[in-house]
Nucleic acid binder design. Structure first.
Length: 352
DNA sequence: TGTCATGATTACCT
DNA sequence: AGGTAATCATGACA
């Protein structure tokens, strides 16, 4: 009975078609695995229907064999009845023995079918089994976000959705990725230093380009644009050439602020993005770099389009690394936390 | 084949 | 609900 139910649930013994895919979807949902992997699921369905077909043909065969064998035995008994008296009870007994035998065979068939389905399920739908590394591009996108939000690598639901779309993965995969990344980064910051440098530099180059474009734009198109927050007088920071942009980067990551310490360097970049001055963790970087950062920040703040990616990103909520190396918003006043997000209820600002 | 990287899961926490 | 930490299981690579 349990086997029957199981086969029914798996869509093997149930009504034709639909059942299989429903079971597949249900199984996928139960396993928490992404349901967007249509290729594997169609493959799963194909295999399931194959099992289903085999099951039904075998079942039919057994039934046919059972009937044939029963009539054969009946014939034998009838023949024997000429030589000796055979009671209807005896016939009934023989028939029931045959049926029992065949039903036990059927049971075995059901059992092995169940096993086959289970194996199929685990092979196709067990997320761990079918773990695939994300595409290089996806990893790049995720890393870019992570390192450019290093002071608060907690993407909002919106941001996760955006990233998921960009990376062609699910939101829960994005969450998993960030969960793993945060833990592993925190555990072994040194190991990720190079990676952090790479992505921070990448982000900075993008920022500088955007900034330069904005500068050029404001100079050529809107001479009346106020220059209040953005003065190019900063001694080490000139945005009028690519070379200087690179110098800035070099300074930021290598020399001018003293030794480059990764967790801080990442924050430095974060600072560029979201700082409004008050949330900037100045203690973490040298004043020299800070001035550069501030300058760049001003430039960025003038760059309308860039806000989507950096500072003005509504999907980003500023949190800071705390003294323990965590990302809990210990350093960030609740007033600057974006209302659109935050690390959930776990570290909500109300807890402080 | 061993080892490391990495995506997913689980238990527990707030 | 969404976070961390530990762990599992598989992929990639030397």
């Amino acid at each position: 009975m349990r086997l029957d139910n199981m086969l029914l649930a798996e869509g093997v013994a149930g009504p034709e078609k639909g059942g299989g895919s429903a079971a597949a979807a249900a199984a996928a949902a139960a396993a928490g695995s992404p349901t967007d992997n249509s290729i594997e699921h169609s493959d799963y369905r194909a295999k399931l229907s194959q099992i289903r077909q085999i099951y039904h043909t075998e079942l039919e065969k057994y039934e046919q064999a059972c009937n044939e064998f029963t009539t054969h035995v009946m014939n034998l008994l009838r023949e024997q009845s000429r030589t000796r008296p055979i009671s209807p009870k005896e016939i009934e007994r023989m028939v029931s023995i045959i049926h029992r035998k065949f039903s036990s065979i059927q049971m075995q068939l059901k059992q092995s079918t169940c096993e086959a389905v289970m194996i199929l399920r685990s092979r196709f739908l067990d997320a761990r089994r079918k773990r695939r590394n994300f595409s290089k591009q996806a990893t790049e996108i995720l890393n870019e976000y992570f390192y450019s939000h290093l002071s608060n690598p907690y993407p909002s639901e919106e941001a996760k959705e955006e990233l998921a779309k960009k990376c062609s993965i699910t939101v829960s995969q994005v969450s998993n990725w960030f969960g793993n990344k945060r833990i592993r980064y925190k555990k072994n910051i040194g190991k990720f230093q190079e990676e952090a440098n790479l992505y921070a530099a990448k982000t900075a180059v993008t920022a500088a380009h955007a900034a330069a474009a904005a500068v050029q734009n404001s100079q050529t198109n809107s001479p009346t644009t106020p220059n209040s927050g953005f003065q190019m007088k900063d001694e080490e920071f000139q945005l009028d050439s690519a070379e200087n942009k690179n110098t800035l980067l070099t300074n930021m990551f290598t020399g001018s602020s003293g030794s480059f310490n990764l967790p801080n360097s990442g924050d430095l970049f974060m600072s560029m993005q979201n700082l409004n001055g008050d949330s900037y963790q100045g203690a973490q970087v040298g004043a020299n770099v800070q001035s550069q950062v501030d300058t760049l920040r001003h430039v960025i703040s003038q760059t309308a389009g860039y806000n989507d990616v950096l500072g003005g990103n509504p999907m980003y909520s500023p949190h800071g690394l705390n003294g323990n190396g965590g990302w809990q918003d210990a350093t960030t006043p609740s007033s600057v936390i974006s209302p659109t997000e935050g690390p959930g209820s776990v570290h909500s600002d109300t807890s402080n």
